[in-house]
Nucleic acid binder design. Structure first.
Lengths: 193, 193, 193, 193
DNA sequence: TATGAATGAGACTTCATTCAT
DNA sequence: GATGAATGAAGTCTCATTCAT
């Protein structure tokens, strides 16, 4: 399995750094190779093409992420509480890796439609996770019984994503983790009193 | 004033069509010129360069948009009602121009950081509009008194944007305007019952 | 005769200023028109094309120049003295019109081979003038009897031209007219004592 | 060192041929690449941009030239004799490479001011060489003791350059090397007998 | 496995010139 | 005669990918 060879991860991590520091459009394959300490051609022994690096990057990082959250959420069965864990974990992950935060919130979005479609496929796992929480909430009666799950999920994801993006655009200069209680409260209770 | 000359709008509208149909990265200046029915060089009598077309496009369309909403919102002073108008109008605008929807929700986001920064400046006007509604709501007591305006605005915008993007990704095959009551309700009341 | 109409000279003088201030490659027809206070299209009522402006410019200015020198040289029949007048007059003309000096010594030389060939044709008149002086000098016995007229002319012209060009490149910051005695002496006596 | 790789010189020599045969303004990079037998992109592995080719070309060829002359001039200490070597060598170099003669005497002079400034820097070395000869001549008493070195150098260079340019303009149809005694005699003794 | 020199397609922009008014 | 908006051809350079070593 290629993914287990040491250079696979080496190249992906190099890609994160190079994209974060140079921006998506200046992240040439040769720069990634240099950062990883391998020859340009070596990249193509592990990845089909440049797109493949980006998608693998997202798969690798996002996959870990979903697994982590699922584990953490296992501690409770209360959907509201699970949502809290979700928001906290999401923000925590971004806060833990500043480079990755830049890459996922800003740079990777400049990729072309093709790549973005395939990234969305990876994202689906995360969205299913959200759906599960919401579904659970409706079934256990802690969330509104006539909740439109799809819309609700879009609110949850859209809100978390926008808060995260704003934080990155503002150079991550405040603590995003401290925002989770406020975000959680807004999602659960809405704008009204 | 160049913006008042007929070809200015002609070219911008051509750009919307070409970008929507070919994607951001395949929207060559020559294609836009052809679609507008002018010579390549004519573009440069009205725009400094290709970037300038894109930014002007966004300014022109978004500017109109903010003005329209402000006018509609003038009918009521109730923040909750104003929010409803906001969501409805936003979705309506996207539904009214399928090409523009693709361009603003998908294609323009692939532009480089420079352009995106300048697009964000235009977007700010819209965000200020949201802030005004929320501020009004807090002051008149219809919204939660301890609302974090910035977070709340990020929820409102993030949700609307995510709903819109999903709709475009799914080829606009359902009615987005019919979603406004649900979105509005979610924003105001949250996920709980 | 087009050359007698007021706008003909107006445009040529505008061209001198524009080329001197912007350099040959940035001297667009539209700039020349603006400087002359006429419309772009008007240029083409007086000149066949852009080349024609440049060649006419040279003809006009250089023609006057040769006539002036011939007149001044008529005062004496001594070739050595005539050569002195030649050098002095040449330098004086350049000192009198700083813009023209830049144009003839630096900018016009960047024109393509075609234009330069035609400029050389105009220059020929000047070279014939030099030949006449030298021929006269040989015949009257004041110059070396076995002088190779062509080579001698190339030395005279090459020297004057190089001194002038160096002066322009150094921003005309010293007096070129004061150099004429030295140049004259060098040409006549050579480097030896 | 890039300059030592075989393709570096290959491309420079191709540039000389292409510029000589097509003229400066029609010497596209693609033509140079074709002449050199490499891909367009390969050019940019060895040169920063098109300007860089031209400047390198001049540096390379002119650098060799100055070294050659210095070596030849080492045989004698007599300034008059050294001057003879200088003129002969200069003409010999041009006669040896007809393409290069066209490029340096005619085509490269059409380059823009930027390039010409940098070419002048290379040329300076040559001018210093001339200055050294003249200085030596004055100090050893073979040249006029009150010689203005700068003016004298301008006469030497201006004369050589003008003779060379005329020869190239006339399609190199006579032998330029045979002119060196005449030119040398003129420079040393002047026009008088 | 690993290397890295070489490849070559593809698009933005300028500006001399025209011609309907 | 005068205008100036419109035209459209043409060239530099980047960078993902390959393949001989």
């Amino acid at each position: 399995m290629k993914k287990d060879k040491p250079k696979y991860k080496l190249i992906i991590d190099a890609a994160v750094v190079v994209i974060a520091e140079n921006g998506y459009h200046h992240a040439q394959v040769s720069k990634i190779a240099k950062q990883a300490g391998v020859a340009d051609g070596t990249i193509y022994l592990y990845f089909k093409n440049k797109e493949d690096i980006l998608i693998s990057l997202f798969e690798e990082k996002m996959g870990q992420f979903v697994q982590k959250i699922r584990k953490k959420m296992a501690d409770t069965e209360d959907a509201v509480e699970q949502l809290k864990v979700l928001v906290e974990s999401h923000f925590q992950m971004l806060a833990d890796d500043h480079h990755l935060a830049i890459v996922t919130q800003l740079e990777l979005r400049q990729s072309n439609k093709d790549i973005r479609m395939r990234i969305n496929k990876v994202l689906k796992e995360y969205l299913v996770l959200v759906d599960d929480v919401l579904q659970n909430g409706v079934e256990t009666g802690v969330l509104s019984e006539d909740l439109d799950i799809r819309l609700a999920r879009q609110m949850v994801f859209g809100t978390i994503d926008e808060v995260a993006t704003s934080w990155v655009i503002n150079d991550q200069k405040y603590s995003i983790t401290e925002l989770s209680p406020g975000v959680h409260r807004l999602l659960v209770k809405g704008l009204c009193k």
